[in-house]
Design a protein around this nucleic acid. Structure first.
Lengths: 238, 238
DNA sequence: CAGTGGTCTAGACCACTGC
DNA sequence: CAGTGGTCTAGACCACTGA
């Protein structure tokens, strides 16, 4: 038997649904606690218990004397600098932009198969950009995912905007985490040439997979940095 | 003016203190909610609000019908495989151990100064181990911190146990996060020789700083991996 | 000023645990 | 069975916001 969910959780899920469905968009004001008491016919404590759940998920913020509001995810992009190359670079006062190198259909590489839960041999769309900092090549970025999603990302301009920020502020995704895997590899052939380094130069390879509010992988990406000039910072919490 | 803390937070802090001071050790049962109501002369809701705070920090767990218990941190070491080299390697069925290479007093390197909030020129104690997987060199590990702490870690056997697990299960630290910074550097001289790789081979360098429950850096460490054989996985949450 | 969220009280019934 | 935490009600007073 599935135990019936407690009332406060039902209300929490109902509100969560309204937010995910963009019925309550970023920045929108939630009904006041007394309004929710009336709507769901429960006591104030029950309402507050529901709101506490949403607050804990970072979905809403409460402002004393004003009300509760849906958070604007893009304004609190604290999922690590890797996931926000342009933002991080610009915040240090440097010029950052990218050049779209290619958009093509490929057979999903092994890491994408695993990250996205695909079958071997599935085809995916892959967009590649060369990211520049102060007019010097800084990194090669590759993003892989569902065709419709990648086309939407390209349309929203991958040469200026970070993927995470497009996903959250333009495409309505609600992200909760990013899975990352870092390793060090030698630069080779075309990659070395495009980054302007000698063959064999150590590169930092970071593969990142944003996870949405339902625990699903949205897409997956690979970033190749010059190891001598850039590093990847993150805070891992339990 | 510092605003007076609400009652429930005072109680939360009091209980948190008892846990941190090991007055309530891992696995210990907290007083029941009714006992806490009597002790602090507050209503049950207030008590539960305090416990909710501790629960959110992962410090206690509640068991219906039994009571609330202090969590055993070592049993939930999910702060990333980097921070648990031995544990992660052994869990894949491979032999993992280390060799203590040196323990010496040094002038704190720049990254340690920043991570630990020291002054340039301060001296710290530094222990180095060579970590082996299936009898082959896998990584060079260096840990830097306060003299007493490093000596305690060495005494608890850095050749067998992960730092995080020693800190949590033997030395009574309560860790909440780990700050990490990854980059790729070429192997050089002594380091290359000890890892058994050619000069210039890309190495993954991960610097990790465990953060305790009060937000303080406990110590800081640097790990040099062979980039072709190991990678660093982490899930970054908001 | 009225409306909002922040805090708190004094009760209640339930499901679960262990004796 | 008594003790525990899980859920919920119907109130209350406060501090803060904005008109």
């Amino acid at each position: 038997m599935t135990a019936p969910q407690p009332r406060f959780r039902q209300i929490e899920e109902e509100l969560r649904q309204r937010i995910v469905d963009n019925e309550l968009g970023p920045g929108a004001k939630l009904p006041s606690e007394s309004a929710l008491m009336a709507e769901f016919a429960v006591s104030r404590i029950t309402v507050r218990q529901s709101l506490a759940g949403l607050h804990a998920s970072g979905l809403i913020e409460k402002v004393n004397g004003k009300g509760s509001f849906v958070t604007r995810p893009a304004e609190t992009s604290n999922l690590g600098p890797i996931t926000g190359f342009y933002e991080a670079t610009r915040s240090r006062g440097r010029l950052a932009y990218g050049k779209l190198a290619s958009v093509r259909k490929i057979k999903a590489p092994a890491f994408a198969v695993q990250a996205l839960g695909l079958n071997t041999g599935d085809t995916v769309l892959c967009a590649t950009t060369l990211r520049m900092a102060d007019n010097a090549p800084a990194a090669i970025f590759m993003i892989i995912g569902d065709e419709a999603l990648i086309r939407a990302l390209v349309k929203e301009d991958l040469e200026t905007n970070d993927v995470m920020s497009i996903l959250e502020s333009r495409l309505g995704y609600r992200l909760t985490a990013v899975d990352t895997e870092s390793s060090a590899i030698p630069a080779a052939g075309d990659v070395a040439r495009r980054l302007g380094v000698a063959d064999g130069t150590p590169l930092l390879r970071v593969r990142a997979t944003p996870i949405d509010i339902r625990g699903n992988a949205v897409c997956t990406s690979e970033l190749l940095f010059r190891g001598d000039r850039y590093s990847h910072k993150a805070r891992v919490t339990r």
